[in-house]
Computed example of a mutant assay.
Amino acid sequence: MRKVFPSKVDVSLLILFVITSIPAILIGIKEKDWVLFAILIAVFVLIMYLLYDTYYVVTQGTLKVHSGFIVNKNIPIESIILIRKSDSILSAPASSLTDRIEVCYGDSKSIVISPKDRMIFVDELLKQNLEINVDL
């Protein structure tokens, strides 16, 4: 059993990245600063890659959180204590700013994620650990 849950991607987040990137890219072109232009394009591509390469995999006994080459965390499902709604805007392997949940596990560890199908995701975890408290 292996279920993959893509991260929800906020359109507002995409618009924010595009709007903030365009002026800098245009300055690089106008000033004919091709090094700056190349760096800005690379950063833009990296951000887009991270937004779309963020997903969560539920397998037998493990929740895998993946975000590009930056986050690749395996969490034993039996160690998950609580899943709750989160309004945190801190950096996290979540491509949404509005529909985030915090998964608390182990000895006071947690991770903020944003599965697109949140309730189906939570149900999959509950199938393996009925002890998880859910506060959504």
Score class of each variant (00 low, 15 high):
N74S: 13
I22V: 09
Y105F: 15
Y56I: 05
I81R: 13
P23S: 13
V112N: 10
I113H: 01
T20Y: 08
F44A: 06
V58Q: 11
L16E: 05
S79D: 15
V43Q: 11
K127Y: 05
Y105M: 12
V45G: 03
G68R: 09
I81W: 03
G61W: 09
W34R: 07
F17K: 02
D87A: 07
L90N: 12
E78M: 11
D107Y: 08
K32Y: 13
S96M: 10
M119E: 07
D135P: 00
E124K: 10
I101C: 08
L126I: 02
L14H: 03
I80T: 09
V4C: 05
K64P: 00
V65R: 04
G68M: 10
T59M: 13
F69S: 02
S12R: 11
D87G: 09
L40E: 04
M1R: 10
T62G: 01
P93A: 06
A38G: 08
T54M: 07
V112I: 15
R2W: 04
F5S: 06
L46A: 14
L50Y: 11
S110I: 05
S7F: 06
L36P: 00
V134M: 12
S91F: 14
A24D: 01
I81E: 14
P6H: 10
D10E: 13
A94T: 00
W34P: 01
L46T: 09
R118G: 00
N72R: 04
V122T: 05
C104K: 12
K32A: 15
K127F: 06
N133W: 00
L13K: 09
R84N: 05
I39H: 03
K109R: 15
I25E: 00
I39T: 03
V11L: 15
M119G: 00
P93T: 02
E31S: 14
G106T: 01
R118Y: 03
I39N: 02
I27K: 03
I41C: 02
I101D: 06
D99K: 13
G106N: 05
I120K: 13
I29P: 00
L82E: 14
M1H: 12
K3L: 11
S114A: 15
Y49H: 12
Y55W: 07
P6V: 10
E124F: 11
I113F: 09
I27T: 02
S88C: 08
H66S: 02
L16S: 03
K30H: 09
I22P: 00
F17N: 08
A94Y: 10
I77N: 10
V45D: 01
K64C: 00
A24E: 03
